[in-house]
Amino acid sequence: MTPLQSGPFDPGAEGQNTHLVLENARGQLSLWPAWRAVPQGWSALFGPAAHEACVDRVEARRR
């Protein structure tokens, strides 16, 4: 039996590097699970890092 992977928006265990912050050519950001492949047209801007750290990075860019 294979282990289950977290859902894309599941913050995962606290303190674990579960997410990335992605950016596209338009400067749009996306919170992305680290276990998924980065989609074409996007690149990793930050991470892998804990979910909270990635959310903080996205929020900081909004200010």
Rank of each mutant, 00 (worst) to 15 (best):
Q40T: 04
G27H: 07
W42E: 03
L22A: 02
G27E: 14
N17G: 00
V58W: 03
N24H: 05
A13H: 09
F9K: 05
R61S: 14
R62H: 14
G12F: 02
P11M: 01
E23Q: 13
R57E: 15
G7E: 09
D10L: 06
V58Y: 01
G41I: 07
A44K: 09
L31P: 05
G7S: 08
R61Q: 14
S43L: 11
L22N: 07
A53Y: 05
V38R: 00
D56C: 06
H51D: 15
L4I: 11
P48C: 05
A37Y: 01
L22R: 07
V21Q: 12
V55S: 07
G41Y: 02
E14S: 02
N24P: 05
P33K: 01
R57T: 09
P3K: 11
L22W: 02
A60Q: 14
W35F: 09
S30F: 00
A49H: 10
P39T: 06
L22G: 06
A34I: 01
P11Q: 03
P39V: 04
A44Y: 02
W42F: 11
Q16W: 01
P3W: 12
R62Y: 14
A25Y: 03
P8R: 12
A60N: 08
D10R: 02
E59F: 07
G15P: 13
P3L: 10
P3T: 10
D56I: 06
H51E: 10
P33Q: 06
E14A: 12
A49K: 07
E23H: 03
P48A: 11
G41M: 08
S6L: 15
R57L: 11
A34R: 07
C54L: 01
N17R: 13
D10C: 05
G27Q: 09
G41E: 03
L29C: 05
V21F: 00
W42R: 03
N17V: 01
Q5T: 04
P39H: 06
L22K: 06
Q28L: 13
V58D: 13
A13I: 11
A13C: 06
A49S: 14
L31K: 05
Q16R: 09
P33V: 04
